[in-house]
Amino acid sequence: MVWEKWAMRGVCGVLAAAGFVCAAPQTGNAEPSIPPAVRDLQRVITPDLPATYGADTAVVILGYGLTPEGTLRTELVRRLRAGLVQAMFAPWSPVIVTGGNPRAGLSEADAMADWLVSAGLDPARILREPHAESTVANARNTAVLMAEHELADAVLVTSSDHIDRARAAFLDAGVTIAGELTPDRTPWPALPLRIDQFGPGLPPA
């Protein structure tokens, strides 16, 4: 489409000003090669925004193993950033962090909750499930927690190579899935992000 060609030219112009070079179109029927930097910039400029949900929908962020020192691995930070973006677009939704497997006395859920609070999320929105040691346990324990808080459904947040297994486990546990989000589909994946700098606020008490 014409607008796509002009959009690509605009993206390439920005990159050229920054010292990057766009690949030249290929001859024949082959698609032009798009450098990763261009794809990342396109995602920042025209992201797929997460959906909005109400107070009876939980944003469920699945854990990922901590380091032996109890710190967050890069992939877990990516999941948390995706979950934080979803929380911004669903300001009434509670956020469930699920994961046990403690390291240095800290569970995945507790480490995840600490990260979210440091990023500006209200601690009152966070529900912790710190016992699960597998995806199946994530789902079963979260289902119990959701029932206790009378939550109707969930948005699953995990890695793209884990979402199919997570979806199956949560469906088997009886959880209704309202949506899914993975880090590769999240807007602004590498920009500084705090919920008190961007996104809607919490409802009045």
Rank of each mutant, 00 (worst) to 15 (best):
A18P: 13
A18D: 03
A18W: 09
G19R: 02
G19P: 06
G19S: 13
G19M: 14
G19W: 12
F20Q: 08
V21L: 14
C22T: 11
C22P: 13
A24V: 11
P25L: 05
P25Y: 03
P25G: 10
Q26V: 15
Q26M: 12
G28H: 12
N29L: 09
A30I: 09
E31S: 14
S33R: 04
S33V: 13
I34K: 12
I34N: 08
I34E: 08
I34T: 15
P35N: 04
P35A: 09
R39I: 13
D40H: 08
D40N: 08
L41C: 08
L41Q: 07
L41R: 02
V44H: 09
V44G: 12
V44P: 11
V44A: 10
T46L: 06
P47I: 12
D48M: 11
L49M: 14
A51W: 05
T52Y: 00
Y53M: 04
G54V: 00
G54D: 14
A55Q: 11
T57V: 15
V59E: 00
V59L: 13
V59H: 02
V60S: 08
V60G: 02
V60D: 08
I61F: 12
I61S: 06
L62M: 09
L62A: 06
G63N: 03
Y64R: 06
G65H: 02
G65E: 11
G65F: 07
L66A: 08
L66R: 09
L66D: 03
T67A: 07
E69F: 13
E69P: 15
E69I: 15
E69N: 15
G70S: 06
G70A: 06
R73A: 14
R73F: 12
T74E: 09
E75M: 15
E75N: 13
L76G: 01
V77T: 15
R78L: 14
L80G: 05
L80E: 00
R81Q: 07
A82D: 02
A82S: 14
G83M: 09
L84A: 11
L84G: 03
V85W: 01
Q86P: 04
A87W: 10
A87H: 07
A87G: 07
A87R: 12
M88N: 04
F89H: 10
P91Q: 00
P91D: 01
W92C: 11
S93L: 02
S93W: 02
S93Y: 01
V95A: 10
V95H: 02
I96P: 01
I96F: 00
I96Y: 00
I96H: 03
V97L: 05
T98Q: 09
T98V: 10
T98R: 05
T98I: 10
G99A: 12
G99P: 04
G99W: 04
N101F: 04
N101V: 14
N101R: 13
N101K: 11
P102W: 02
P102T: 01
R103N: 14
A104G: 10
A104K: 00
G105I: 02
L106D: 06
L106T: 14
S107K: 00
S107P: 00
S107E: 11
A109D: 12
A109R: 01
A111C: 11
A111N: 03
M112E: 14
A113G: 09
A113F: 04
D114Q: 14
D114K: 15
W115E: 08
V117P: 03
S118R: 02
A119Y: 07
A119G: 06
L121K: 01
L121N: 05
L121M: 09
L121H: 03
D122Q: 10
A124G: 14
A124Q: 11
A124V: 10
